[in-house]
Nucleic acid binder design. Sequence first.
DNA 1: AAGACACTCAACCGCTCAGCA
DNA 2: CTGCTGAGCGGTTGAGTGTCT
Length: 270
Amino acid sequence: MGRQPCCDKLGVKRGPWTAEEDRKLINFILTNGHCCWRAVPKLAGLLRCGKSCRLRWTNYLRPDLKRGLLTDAEEQVVIDLHAKLGNRWSKIAAKLPGRTDNEIKNHWNTHIKKKLIKMGIDPVTHEPLDRTGSPATASQSVVTAESKSHEVTTQQRLQDDAREVSAGDGSSLPESSTNTTSTGGSSSSSSHDQDPLVKWLLEDDPPTGNEPWLSFAGNVDVDEFSSIADGPELPWDGATDWLLDYQDFGLGDSNLVDGYMVNSSNISKF
DNA sequence: AAGACACTCAACCGCTCAGCA
DNA sequence: CTGCTGAGCGGTTGAGTGTCT
């Protein structure tokens, strides 16, 4: 009846990961990949549930992760994407190489949200908080004109979802049945279809790096990433300094293209 | 100096979805 | 078609840390 727990709570360690646990998990995944996450902790000799291992790996241990605060350019992309997609953090993260949904979600809640509110912009609707006047005119620069033209209402988002689903199963929504709720929604939604950014967002393929809105990713972030180990601020704390030993992971520099792993004998298994 | 308060972010929880038998 | 299982996602929590008084 009830949902089966992902693991029996007895004998399963919780809380912060130790360096030793990190080491075990990385060693295991790099040598074996992960056939199924539930089996990983047993095989790796960890007293954790598989879910916890997956989270630790995807959010913290993955070698292609960038760490540190989001750059202004990344922040801008997050704002734009959030205006279009709402709280679909995984979708947003998929378009930001080296960033995780958790990281973006946290950054949104702790930084961007406040920044937008301070600027008089509703972080949910991306519209000015005071709609009678125009107090946020100066702040509007945060949300680009391009993104503002595609602000996503709940209804639009539902329509996007429906379109996404219909695209997925090969069928398409009848044109007459969509985007008819309001003239504004209609034009906005149809422009979504035309919008290359939205098309790109809804694709599963990783970005090529040629997308104009990702230009920062190709020439700034990768440099930052590669220089991180040399810089004064390491991306991880001292407890995981040993991770630097894994920096190449047997993966040459050529394996990181625009933040994506493209030729890893180990990682490509995933 | 120390206690209170605020902030950050890693980790957890519970739900949904996809794949499979 | 149905039920089960594993994986992924978004929301929430709480420990650790920083800042203020």
